[in-house]
Simulated assay, not measured.
Amino acid sequence: MNVKDIARVIRPQQWIKNVFVLVPLFFGGSLLDTTDIIAAVTAAMAFCFISSSIYCLNDIIDVEDDRRHPTKCHRPIAAGKISVAQAYVMMALMVALSFGSVAMLGGYALGVGAVVGLYLLMNVAYCLVLKRYAILDVCTIAFGFVLRLFAGGIATGIGLSNWIVLMTFLLTLFLSFAKRRDDVLKMNQTGHAPRKNTSRYNLDFINQAITITATVTLVCYVMYTVSPEVEQRIGTRYLYLTTVFVIIGILRYLQLTLVDNKSGDPTKAMLHDRVLQAVVLLWFLAYLLIIYILR
């Protein structure tokens, strides 16, 4: 067992997903508050470790299926480079590190710990049962990102707008459906379903689901930016100007999904697509300018 194999099991490259824990910090206007920054980053680390524990469990449960898969057979556990017993030890260590991070949050530790615990239980259920059922699988994944949002809000004491919660759920649901579309394409090409529930999806359904969730996500963002509650808390009425970048970002991802058929991994798309990176950067700078400088 070497460091490279351990990294392939705990998947640190997927930790970028836990940036959602920092969302309340950014949208709440506390990006310059050192205390809130430390609390949010600590909560994010707790989610990094707990999500890695789930990756360990997922590979343990799927080990026999992975051994029969043409590419997944090279995963460390399936290939025998890491034993199932060692993987359970790694999982336990990740859980311990997660709750150790939570314990550093002082008065907010109980609330964040409850959210992390719920995330752990939900994802154990996902690995064992829920991932077998179409629609329920993507909804479970999306709710996991909402829990990240709640953890960040609790850790910093920042209240969450209803619109931001809905937008987070819908955005991650949109990305999850786009990822399932890639599975359907592979099933249609090879006749083999990458997941047990892939046969319960088809391109017509997936395309409509992607369109619906993308549309409602955009509506939620617009409603968030013009919400009187948000305008009063942030102290500006110009947030709606950032909508243009959200529209471009969603359209770009739709292009990658529906035209280029490159929706298999949202994390990889974000890390490698220069257009998406530029749009996110411009959105970030515009939002930063409006709520931290011009208000």
Rank of each mutant, 00 (worst) to 15 (best):
Q277L: 09
D36P: 00
L203N: 09
L31N: 05
T168W: 01
Q255V: 11
F174G: 00
A178W: 00
I141D: 02
L121Q: 02
M45Q: 05
W15N: 08
V21T: 08
V3C: 07
F145S: 01
V95L: 11
L32P: 02
S199P: 00
I210K: 05
C73M: 11
Q86W: 14
N123C: 08
T168K: 00
R132S: 13
I141S: 03
L149H: 03
V226R: 12
Y133F: 15
K131Q: 10
H74F: 15
L128H: 04
M270L: 15
V222L: 15
I290R: 03
L136N: 08
Q86F: 09
L185S: 07
Y292I: 00
R148A: 01
R274V: 14
L218H: 00
K17T: 05
G111I: 01
R68S: 14
N162D: 12
N2F: 06
I164S: 07
L32T: 14
V259I: 14
V9G: 13
V41P: 01
M90V: 09
V230M: 09
P266R: 10
Y292E: 04
F47W: 03
T168D: 00
F49S: 06
D182S: 15
A40W: 10
T140A: 03
D137W: 07
W283M: 01
A214Q: 11
M45L: 14
M1D: 10
R252V: 09
P228F: 05
T213D: 05
G264C: 07
V115K: 05
I60G: 07
Y133D: 05
A151D: 00
G117H: 14
V19T: 13
T267V: 15
S199E: 08
M223L: 15
Q208M: 10
Y119W: 07
V244G: 02
L97G: 13
T267K: 10
D33G: 03
F284P: 01
D182T: 02
C73F: 01
T236A: 08
G157E: 02
M167T: 03
R8C: 09
S199N: 08
T213H: 06
S98M: 09
I61L: 12
G107A: 13
L239A: 13
V41C: 04
N197K: 08
T217G: 01
H272W: 03
K131V: 04
I37R: 09
Y119G: 07
K131H: 08
R252T: 08
A78Y: 13
V279E: 03
Q277D: 02
A46L: 01
I291N: 09
L93R: 03
W283I: 02
I234H: 02
I6L: 15
E231H: 13
M1R: 13
D204R: 10
Y126A: 06
T213L: 05
G157Y: 01
M1H: 14
G107D: 15
I250K: 04
S263K: 02
F205I: 09
